[in-house]
Design a protein around this nucleic acid. Structure first.
Length: 479
RNA sequence: UCCUCCUUAGCUCAGUUGGUUAGAGCAUCUGACUGUUAAUCAGAGGGUCGUAAGUUCAAGUCUUACAGGGGGAGCCA
């Protein structure tokens, strides 16, 4: 018989027909005459209840069925005689597809710590929490593609292996086919990369932005959505060595158009999650609420769905770096010396604590900071006429901090070339990028959204290692 | 990379000012129960207290080193 997925079964309004269902056992409860199995196949957070009448044959099978076992069940879909669910499956034939030895299977029908599950990453998808995150992650990927497609953007595949080492976004992972035990050397003792696969040193990309700019200067509106690699020794709840980034790039956009797009996109995907992932969000919300109970009253945060709606319904606050410095400098927090790094002079980079103060204490909503000092930002950002600032824009979210970093790009050849020289970026490695400013240059802008940081916000999870199936972080490559 | 905390049963945790035989819930096994909802009730098995060394009459408890993990900071998305 053809299998029906559990989300379909639970939606059924007409009961009383024969079906087949397959899935993994979440719990089994028994009494003298009847046993109940909660079965889940990942199509929904909800389980279907399988009812098994006790007889000699079923007794033997049930002894081998424990949490984690895979089953195929033929039976009648009927209205439930119990009160916890609308429909259930009255089993006529049970088949064990795969047993799970209860003395070895690590997952139990109870709450496990996220730390424990991280060490069981090969099985954690089978928990309610991680299957919910998996489904939401898919929905967000789809929503992002839909958002851009509906607005006439083209998706571009930027390269994963790159020969450019001047993107300046962070430490890079080297890619080589040279024999590490026996590296070819030049007469001066340095490694001879002309003998390497590409004839030069190669790395994994840290950003697709520069390539996206090339595409935008022909296709007008493009976006990348691909893996990104940073070899920084970052050990935090919001950094990964391998993460997915969305980088739209638009010709004829200025910084204000860029901010509008960023805000629209974030609101669109939040709305999409509320529309399509409510079951999973409600589960994660309940889970969070239980965790929050253990916290002090003033450390508790807004309920997950309420928080998503709040961001959706309120315009983001847009202020300049200079205005932010004034707010921080004159804040009681600064005067009472509650910041670890006190704000004194214009020009300093903002610390996490300052960003959090602006978002969580002062404005109490997402903030877009613009026009940063040029010395703390990348070489490609559009220089303002004041000679001090650039048209950068960072979107700051509660709890997460920077979720988007973007800017209008410098389109004037001479200004870009001068800035590269000032920052010691070798022109010969970036000649192709500079040429776009030589031929038919136009104002353009773009931004980068860290996909896992978006996932942190949508799911309310606290650690970025829990919103990507197989996290890559320093000293960790087990799965 | 820096600072800080944690490691006790398969899992989550308790373990007093160092003191006799290290506890609980869940899970597992046995039994009871006419439909349960992370079922319930009764009983059983399960631990060289992360590893190594030290202090002490005595260490799960104190000290040091190492390992694994968490949180915070920096770098950023």
């Amino acid at each position: 018989m053809k299998r029906t997925e559990i989300n379909e079964l639970l939606k059924t309004t007409e009961a009383g027909h024969k079906i087949n269902v397959k899935g993994w056992v979440r719990t089994k409860r028994g009494s003298k005459n009847v046993s109940f199995i909660a079965l889940n196949d990942g199509s929904t957070i909800n389980n279907i209840q399988v009812v098994v009448e006790m007889n000699e044959e079923n007794d033997k099978l049930l002894e081998r069925i424990h949490t984690g076992a895979a089953l195929s069940v033929d039976g009648m879909l009927i209205e439930s005689a119990g009160s916890g669910q609308r429909v259930e499956v009255q089993a006529t034939k049970l088949e064990i597809l795969g047993e799970a030895n209860p003395n070895e299977y690590p997952l139990q029908p109870k709450k496990h710590s996220l730390e424990f599950l991280r060490e069981k990453a090969h099985l954690r998808y089978r928990t309610s929490t991680f299957s919910a995150i998996g489904r939401i992650r898919h929905a967000m990927i789809f929503a992002i593609h839909k958002f851009f497609n509906d607005r006439g953007f083209y998706n571009v595949h930027s390269p994963i292996i790159t020969g450019s080492d001047a993107e300046g976004a962070g430490e890079m992972f080297q890619v080589t086919t040279l024999d590490l035990e026996n590296m070819p050397k030049n007469p001066d003792g340095k490694i001879d990369f002309s003998r390497d696969f590409f004839g030069k040193a190669a790395n994994l990309t840290v950003s697709g932005q520069l390539e996206a700019e090339l595409a935008a200067l022909a296709l007008s509106k493009v976006y990348t959505f691909g893996p990104t690699f940073r070899a920084e020794n970052s050990n935090t709840t919001r950094h990964l060595a391998e993460f997915w980034m969305i980088e739209p790039e638009m010709a004829f956009y200025d910084i204000n158009d860029d901010m509008d797009l960023a805000e629209d996109m974030l609101k669109y995907v939040i709305d999409y999650a509320l529309e399509h992932c409510m079951d999973d969000l409600l589960f994660l919300s309940k889970r969070l609420e239980e965790e929050e109970k253990n916290k002090k009253a003033d450390e508790r945060s807004m309920e997950l769905i309420e928080k998503l709606r709040f961001v959706l319904d309120n315009p983001f606050e847009r202020i300049t770096y200079t205005e932010a410095i004034d707010i921080l400098k004159n804040s009681n927090h600064n005067k009472k010396k509650k910041f670890q790094y006190l704000i004194e002079d214009w020009g300093a980079d903002l610390q996490s604590e300052h960003e959090r103060y602006l978002v969580e204490k002062h404005f109490k909503k997402p903030v877009i900071l613009t026009n940063y000092p040029k010395d703390i930002k990348a070489f490609y950002m559009k220089q303002n006429d004041d000679g001090k600032t650039v048209r950068a824009m960072d979107v700051l979210f509660p709890q997460i901090g920077e979720i988007i970093g973007g800017s209008q790009r410098e389109e004037v050849y001479s200004k870009l070339a001068d800035r590269m020289a000032e920052m010691h970026i070798p022109e010969e490695s970036m000649w192709w990028y500079l040429e776009t400013r030589k031929f038919g240059t136009v104002p353009h802008a773009g931004f980068g959204l860290g996909f896992e940081r978006l996932m942190l916000f949508i799911t309310g999870m606290g650690n970025i290692r829990d919103v990507i199936p197989f996290p890559r972080t320093p000293q960790n490559l087990e799965f």
